[in-house]
């Protein structure tokens, strides 16, 4: 589904990603871990198409298309979803209106009829239940006045509504208490299928107790320096990152 080859990217001439290689297949869950400043968020931003980042080398193939060649909105419409680490507030624009616009843009792109009001509201009801999102939040302005937990749940709600092929969760666990974490993780698990894939970016093993990864990668200094299964995450939790840094620097 996603094939990243030798990806280099920089911001303001400072190279952050220094040759990333990663293969993600349908039905898989990948976790990317790593110390602060290793390039985790840069990777998710580059994949989503944030303009401040410049890709200097490498390629990204997404479902047979050259991802880096697509505008950010087209990447989204092709099925790439980023759950933001810091979801953005849009005052005065209701969550419902925002999602309706997004869904109909996607439908238009795939030459489908726009969703009818009934169809749309049915989806809202079904999907908001997945993340136990209060239906009142659906009619409030996008993320405005939401608590940290509500914002993260709203991200997963949007993900459920848009039914992406590949979801990247950028530190979705940060700022969540244990109950909210469970709700968010349950939502993600319920959305998992044979046909979609998830990349979870996180600092902590904690989230991986709920969203169990097939693969764990350690990102350090702009490169994936170690890959393994979920046991690697447990080892990191126990020993920290220093031993990996030592291995790399040795």
């Amino acid at each position: 589904m996603l094939s990243i080859k030798n990806l280099h990217a920089s911001i303001q001439d400072k190279e952050i990603l220094k040759g990333i290689n990663l293969e993600v297949k349908a039905g898989e869950v990948h976790a990317i871990m790593g110390p602060n400043g290793s390039g985790k968020s840069t990777l998710s931003n580059v994949l989503a198409g944030r303009e401040e980042y410049e890709v200097t080398e490498g390629s990204v193939d997404f479902e047979g298309a050259d991802l880096l060649d697509l505008a950010p909105e087209d990447r989204a419409k092709e099925g790439l979803f980023l759950a933001f680490q810091y979801p953005v507030e849009i005052p005065g624009v209701s969550n419902i209106n925002f999602l309706k616009t997004a869904i109909n843009e996607k439908r238009e792109y795939h030459k489908q009829e726009p969703a009818t009001a009934k169809e749309f509201l049915g989806m809202v009801k079904e999907k908001s239940a997945l993340v136990e999102l209060d239906s009142k939040l659906a009619s409030r302005s996008v993320n405005e006045g939401f608590s940290g937990g509500e914002k993260k749940r709203n991200e997963i709600f949007q993900m459920a509504m848009l039914e992406p092929k590949l979801s990247i969760l950028d530190e979705t666990d940060s700022g969540l208490d244990i109950d909210a974490l469970r709700i968010v993780a349950n939502g993600v698990n319920k959305l998992k299928s044979e046909n979609n894939a998830t990349v979870v970016i996180t600092h902590y093993q904690r989230l991986l107790d709920y969203i169990v990864p097939d693969f764990v990668h350690v990102l350090y200094n702009g490169k994936i320096v170690k890959s393994g299964t979920k046991e690697l995450a447990l080892e990191l939790e126990e020993k920290g990152y220093d031993w990996i840094k030592e291995e790399v620097n040795a």
């Binding site: 505008a71 950010p72 909105e73 989204a76 849009i90």
Partner: peptide
Amino acid sequence: FYCNQRGINT
């Protein structure tokens, strides 16, 4: 960018 990422053009 948030809107873009949800498939809404600039």
